[in-house]
C-alpha cells in the first residue's frame, strides 16, 4: 500500500472530488497560484483552472459567506481557512448563516459546504474551535488524525449535504501513513479504535490521538498497562457507542484533548460517560487538555502546553 503524507491524502481527496463533481469549487487565500499556504491544494489550480480553484483576498467573512450563499444554489464550495483561528472574523457567517439557515427556513434551504483548514499553531493562530463550533446543531465537525482518515473523511464531507467543518493540523501535514489507491469513504460519526487494550481507554481526536498512541506504547513497555486508544474522528455527529463500548471493557478512561479544558470536547465526553457508564467505572474519568492559558510562543513551553505523552502517562498512573 502506498505511504503518503496527511497533506497529500487531503490533496488527493480534493482532486478526486473536483474531478467527480463539477459543482465542487475550492475557494480560499493562496489556494490557487501559490499552491496553498500549507500546500494542501498543490497543483489543483494547474489541473482544474481558475473557475474551480479560486484565490480569494484576505476577507474571510466575505468569502465564507460567499461560499454559503453559493451552496444555497447547489454549488459544493470547499472553503479553506488558512487557519481555523481566522474563523472568528467570519463567525457570524459560520454560526448564524451556515449553522442556522436550514433550520430557520424550515428545511427549504440546504447548504452543502465544507470549511477546512488547520486548527493549531501560534497564539492567535492556534485555536482549536471544534468544541465551540460543535456546540451548534446544524453543523458537522470532523478532526482527522491520520492520512487515511483525512482522505476518507474529506471525501465524505464534500458529498455531505450539510455544512461540514474539517479541522486539520499543521503538525500532521508532513506525517505519513498507508493509504490505499482505490477509492474509499469514511462515514462521519464513526470512531476508530487505533489500538486495542483492556486496562484503560484513552479517548482523543485529531493530533491528540498520536499523543495517546505514544503514551500507550510507554504504558505497555514500562508499566505493563494495556491502553486502548479510541479516535473519535468525528465530533458531531459523535460515535457514543464506540466510547461506551471501550469504557465498559476497560472500566477506566483518560480523555486526551488539545482543547482548553473549559467546555472542551472532552468535557462533553466526560459528562456522557458518567451519565451512561457510571456503574462500569472503576475510577473517575480524567482529562489531559491543553494547559489553560492562551497559546504561548516560546517553543519549549509551547510543546508542554499541549498534552504530551508524559502527561498522559502520569495521569493514567494516577488512576490505574
Amino acid at each position: 500500500m502506498p505511504v503518503i503524507t496527511y497533506r497529500k491524502a487531503l490533496n488527493d481527496a480534493l482532486a478526486e472530488e473536483l474531478a467527480r463533481d463539477e459543482n465542487v469549487v475550492i475557494i480560499g487565500e493562496e489556494v490557487a497560484q501559490y499552491n496553498g499556504a500549507y500546500k494542501v491544494t498543490e497543483e489543483l489550480w494547474k489541473r482544474f483552472g481558475d473557475k474551480r480553484v479560486v484565490d480569494a483576498p484576505i476577507s474571510e467573512a466575505g468569502f465564507i459567506g460567499l461560499g454559503i450563499g453559493a451552496s444555497m444554489l447547489g454549488l459544493r464550495p470547499v472553503v479553506e481557512l488558512m487557519f481555523w483561528s481566522f474563523a472568528f472574523v467570519a463567525y457570524d457567517q459560520i454560526v448564524n448563516n451556515a449553522g442556522c439557515i436550514r433550520y430557520m427556513s424550515g428545511g427549504l434551504v440546504n447548504l452543502p459546504l465544507v470549511i477546512r483548514g488547520p486548527a493549531n499553531g501560534g497564539t492567535t493562530h492556534s485555536h482549536t474551535p471544534e468544541s465551540s463550533l460543535a456546540n451548534h446543531p446544524g453543523v458537522r465537525v470532523v478532526c482527522p488524525a491520520t492520512a487515511y482518515d483525512a482522505k476518507g473523511l474529506m471525501k465524505t464531507a464534500i458529498r455531505d449535504n450539510d455544512p461540514v467543518f474539517v479541522m486539520e493540523n499543521t503538525l500532521l501535514y508532513g506525517e505519513t501513513w498507508e493509504v490505499p489507491e482505490e477509492e474509499y469513504l469514511i462515514p462521519l460519526g464513526v470512531a476508530d479504535v487505533k489500538r486495542e487494550g483492556r486496562d484503560l481507554s484513552l479517548i482523543a481526536h485529531g493530533r491528540a490521538v498520536m499523543t495517546s498512541l505514544k503514551a500507550a506504547k510507554i504504558l505497555a513497555a514500562e508499566h505493563g498497562i494495556k491502553a486502548e486508544v479510541v479516535d473519535l474522528r468525528s465530533i458531531r455527529p459523535l460515535d457514543e457507542e464506540a466510547i461506551l463500548q471501550s469504557v465498559r471493557k476497560t472500566h477506566r478512561a483518560v480523555l486526551v484533548d488539545e482543547n482548553k479544558p473549559f467546555c472542551a470536547v472532552s468535557a462533553q465526553i466526560a459528562a456522557m460517560i458518567q451519565e451512561k457508564a457510571f456503574d462500569d467505572l472503576d475510577a473517575p474519568v480524567q482529562r489531559v487538555c491543553a494547559l489553560d492559558a492562551p497559546a504561548i510562543y516560546s517553543p519549549p513551553l509551547e510543546k508542554q502546553q499541549l498534552p504530551t505523552a508524559e502527561r498522559v502517562v502520569e495521569k493514567v498512573l494516577s488512576i490505574a
Binding site: G62, G65, L66, G69, M72, P77, N96, N97, M104
Partner: peptide, 20 residues
C-alpha cells in the same frame, strides 16, 4: 433566500448567489 436577522450578514450570501 431570506430573511436574515444580523445586520449586513446577508450581504456575503447575496454575493454567493451571484457567484453561483
Amino acid at each position: 433566500w431570506g430573511g436574515h436577522g444580523v445586520v449586513a450578514g446577508q450581504t456575503p450570501l447575496g454575493l454567493g448567489l451571484a457567484f453561483a
